[in-house]
Design a protein around this nucleic acid. Structure first.
Lengths: 184, 184
DNA sequence: TTGTTTACTTACTAATTAATAAGTATTTTC
DNA sequence: GAAAATACTTATTAATTAGTAAGTAAACAA
């Protein structure tokens, strides 16, 4: 149960989402852990292996999130999802979907598949949550749940990116506007 | 007026928006132009100089866009803006704002300022166009023009990013939903 | 206790990177 | 026609990169 492996994933995730996949190197992680580069290669032979580990961590993390809030009302679930993105924005990161999207064409196909699957899962969850909420008359929106889900996701993940450039004042406005949109 | 300089900017722009700022090198451009690396350094001594040239090109390009559609109705202007993003998506690129946003913390402060100014200009233009359209009863939306502008921009620029991952079917749905939202 | 696995280090390679200096041919300017 | 600017090439540097091979020390398993 090497905890080093987990710490490497955490540091890799932070670097990918703060600096970008192609802007960090194994030595960034090695220096932070006070070990040699080869120690990182021991746990993750190649950089795509580390990327894969990071994506898997997000998949597991999102599964835990879904489980954690499954008992709450649909409105609360969506609000919790928006809060997750707020914490991303406040920590100066971007989400893993956005981080990989811009570097997409420099990523291995294998990693693309994993990111694709993760992203599909997130969109499905939002869609279903919106759909269930509408059925129970807890949520209101026009158009298909899928399109509404994509709208919310793009607002949030580009919101976190945009906040780096223009500051964070717009982000909370964006978030409130989404809640208004699906509750009025 | 060396056209090489312009071609380098075009190639640099394409590489930044297709592969990412940290995923391309001067040799990518040099090979495409069939010249030596040093020839690129002659026109743009450092990589941030090239990034600056690319951002300036986008600023001038956006100014031309604003001028070109200033005589049209506000609805048409917004539609033209959405069409611009559609062409980005179809060409497999992301917009310059999104491209720099994810690599933000690996960019020089000087470049960050230029991107910030460009982004501010884009948001202002959307806001004002929405605001004018509302006054003339051509457009309808709840909330402030600024928030609505940020919503549209995030939908579009994350939409182009997301389309890389999930395919382009969602993008047109997103676009239609925005038009519906501001016209009904 | 012996052997094997784990988690590293040391030491290295080959490739790529951004960047510079010095030289050259062509064009432009005075 | 001389001087200077333009647009490169050749050649090189120093740094960084991802990745590997071989060795080691400690924990663990039979």
């Amino acid at each position: 149960m090497s905890s080093t492996r987990e710490v490497i994933i955490q540091l890799g995730d932070e670097l990918i989402r703060k600096k970008g996949y192609n802007a960090f190197s194994y030595s960034d992680i090695a220096k932070a852990l006070n070990v040699k580069n080869a120690a990182i290669h021991y746990h993750f032979p190649t950089k795509p292996d580390l990327a894969s580990g990071v994506v898997r961590w997000h998949t597991e993390s999102f599964d835990r999130f879904v489980k954690k809030c499954s008992a709450k009302s649909e409105l609360v679930q969506i609000k919790m999802f928006l809060n997750y993105y707020t914490s991303i924005q406040l920590s100066g990161k971007v989400c893993i979907i956005g981080a990989f999207a811009t570097d997409w064409n420099s990523m291995e196909q294998h990693i693309q598949e994993e990111v694709r699957e993760f992203t599909g899962g997130v969109i499905s969850w939002i869609s279903e949550t919106l759909s269930n909420g509408k059925e129970k008359n807890l949520l209101t929106f026009s158009g298909s749940p899928k399109i509404e889900a994509v709208k919310i996701l793009t607002n949030m993940f580009a919101g976190a990116q945009l906040a780096r450039i223009t500051g964070n004042e717009d982000f909370s406005g964006l978030k409130n506007s989404i809640i208004e949109q699906i509750t009025k």
